[in-house]
């Protein structure tokens, strides 16, 4: 079966399955599965149909941990304005809405991810505002809480993002990160709040359980940054 992008929302519904998230069964997401042709798509085929790498089609370990923590500690976001940065599937932001956040904005540079976020939000009966583009560097006063899950996997990009998250923390926002120990996740500048063993697939992470932590960014700066 040939895969064509066409209408992105229809594409997402056709090529993913609404699935319970392992660590966060309260949230269901449209994710890729090995039962579907999209799982076998090659880089060439993705390029041909104009599909950027679909980070939104997987519930990454960092997002699952962060979502779990927020749902278990709803007072952190209740009534607050929340930014879900590099939202991917929108998992962390959706969890924040379910935990009683006043409003959630999900920021993504991938326009198709934003469509997936909208579908995912609706599937969980919440509304998430979408923010398209690279917002790193913007010091916005409109947020109380900033969520960033699994954003440190590319060297140069991680540096920019982490420096900006530090600035946001210094500006008084509560900045929470979820990370399973990705290569470019900094060693200092945050305190660990909790750790989870997150169920993932070996095809994504080489192991079926990843020890993943939720961190609060202190804003006190970091070694080597």
């Amino acid at each position: 079966m040939a895969i064509a992008l066409g209408d992105p929302a229809q594409f997402i519904r056709d090529h993913t399955v609404l699935t319970e998230t392992p660590l966060v069964p309260e949230v269901r997401l449209y994710v890729a599965s090995e039962m579907l042709p999209i799982w076998q798509m090659t880089e060439d085929e993705m390029q041909k149909v104009g599909l950027p790498p679909p980070f939104w089609a997987f519930a990454w370990a960092g997002g699952q941990a962060l979502a779990r923590y927020i749902l278990d500690n709803p007072e952190l976001v209740a009534g607050k304005r929340v930014l879900d940065f590099g939202a991917g599937s929108g998992l962390a932001g959706i969890a924040a809405m379910l935990a009683g956040a006043g409003q959630v904005s999900a920021a993504e540079i991938d326009p198709i991810a934003l469509i997936a976020i909208d579908l995912n939000a609706r599937a969980n009966k919440v509304i998430v505002t979408r923010l398209e583009g690279d917002i790193v560097g913007e010091i916005h006063t409109g947020w109380d809480v900033v969520l960033a899950a699994d954003v440190c996997y590319e060297g140069p990009a991680s540096k920019r993002i982490v420096a900006w998250l530090d600035d946001l923390a210094r500006a008084g926002m509560l900045v929470l990160m979820g990370d399973p120990g990705r290569t470019y996740f900094p060693k200092t500048g945050h305190e660990k709040l909790i750790s989870y063993a997150v169920k993932t697939t070996t095809e994504l992470e080489d192991t079926d359980l990843r020890n993943t932590s939720v961190w609060r960014v202190t804003g006190l700066g970091r070694d080597g940054l």
Binding site: A32, W39, Q40, M46, F58, E203
Partner: peptide, 8 residues
């Protein structure tokens, strides 16, 4: 390489 491996 299939999709999960590309993502990985």
């Amino acid at each position: 390489a299939s999709l999960p491996n590309i993502m990985k």
